[in-house]
């Protein structure tokens, strides 16, 4: 796609990405972001982080094509104590490194920091994009709760974008990585302060980050029955979701809800068990790469809009699936 353009050291677009790190671990969803920023190898990717990363993480980043890893630091203001400070440091780094584009993940953290950056810089922000075409200077994002796709133009510099986790599959493209520290010189701009992070006891993979999701709808019947889906998710390396009907019935917390009024997810594989297939549910998961419906009604609407289907009782099909997957793993 870029064959007709010659990239030299000077005109190779520099794209910056803001990494997401949790408990000093680099999340897997960062690699798709690197691929998005790298764009068939035509861009130089600078990865920014507020935390110290180990050698393993550095090697992984190099493998996907990051050539500079830059730790953001400030002496004058605490980056982690306020999203305002973090955004101000990112803005300064974007200017200092002459970034043409800044990419983040459309997660709670990324959405917040990038919108703060957009406000500070007074430039456009393309939120939650699914594709980027750097050459045409456009990005594709959802409009009308996933019913249509909009192509928006990226006219300003730096171009700010957040990318839907898992929407762009990571592709390895080795680069030589150098690490450095960027000392941002910002006055504290903290208008909001992080008072506390409340952590939940049972730490699960976040739905929006999961490469595989198995969802249970209303027929799950009671909260305890989600254990059946969790068991399957554990073998798959995925997370468990719920429909709104199941959430409204009190079987699952709202944080597990997929759909228009819940989470928007884009996993590689989405297994919908006992889910009828309402448009509002599809609004949150239709960009999944493959959708499988498991429903006991052969005429359920879900089968009209998914890739593979099994007609059957989820209380039989799911355990059978878990068992078969476990057997595969063992031998």
């Amino acid at each position: 796609m870029y064959d007709d353009r010659k990239y030299t050291e000077e005109n190779m677009p520099k794209t910056g990405i803001l990494l997401e790190v949790e408990n000093t671990e680099l999340k897997d969803i960062n690699f798709g972001l690197v691929t998005a920023a790298r764009d068939t190898g035509a861009n130089e990717v600078l990865a920014f982080t507020t935390e110290e990363l180990g050698t393993e993480a550095q090697n992984d980043l190099a493998r996907y094509g990051v050539s500079q890893l830059i730790r953001l630091r400030t002496d004058s203001a605490d980056i982690t104590s306020s999203p305002d400070n973090c955004a101000a440091a990112c803005v300064q780094a974007a200017r200092e490194y002459g970034l043409e584009y800044c990419l983040g993940l459309a997660t709670a953290f990324g959405r917040d920091i990038f919108a703060r950056m957009a406000a500070l810089l007074d430039v456009e922000l393309a939120a939650d994009v699914l594709q980027i075409d750097f050459k045409a200077k456009t990005a594709v994002k959802s409009h009308f709760s996933g019913k249509t796709m909009a192509t928006v133009s990226l006219q300003e510099t730096p171009g700010l974008l957040t990318v839907r986790p898992n929407a762009i599959s990571p592709v390895e493209q080795p680069a030589t990585l150098e690490s450095s520290v960027f000392q941002a010189d910002i006055q504290s701009q903290a208008k909001v302060a992080v008072k506390e992070i409340k952590t939940s006891d049972d730490r699960k993979m976040d739905l929006t980050e999961a490469p595989i999701i198995i969802t249970g709808g209303r027929p799950i019947g009671k909260p305890e029955n989600y254990a059946m889906l969790q068991e399957c998710a554990d073998v798959l390396g995925g997370a468990v979701g719920a429909s709104r009907a199941a959430v409204d019935a009190g079987y699952a917390p709202h944080s597990m809800q997929v759909g228009q009024t819940g989470k928007t997810v884009s996993p590689n594989l989405y297994l919908a068990c006992g889910v009828s297939g309402a448009v509002q549910h599809f609004a949150g998961m239709k960009t999944s790469k493959v959708i499988v419906g498991i429903n006991k009604d052969k005429d359920a609407p879900i089968f009209e809009k998914c890739d593979y289907g099994i007609v059957g009782d989820m209380f039989e099909v799911v355990p059978a699936l878990t068992k078969a997957l476990q057997q595969e793993k063992q031998g």
Binding site: T107, A108, V192, A193, V194, T199, S200, M205, S255
Partner: peptide, 13 residues
């Protein structure tokens, strides 16, 4: 605000 994976951020302003 919800941060994902059940974590919540408390902001003061």
């Amino acid at each position: 605000r919800e941060l994902g994976a059940g974590n919540r951020e408390v902001l003061e302003m």
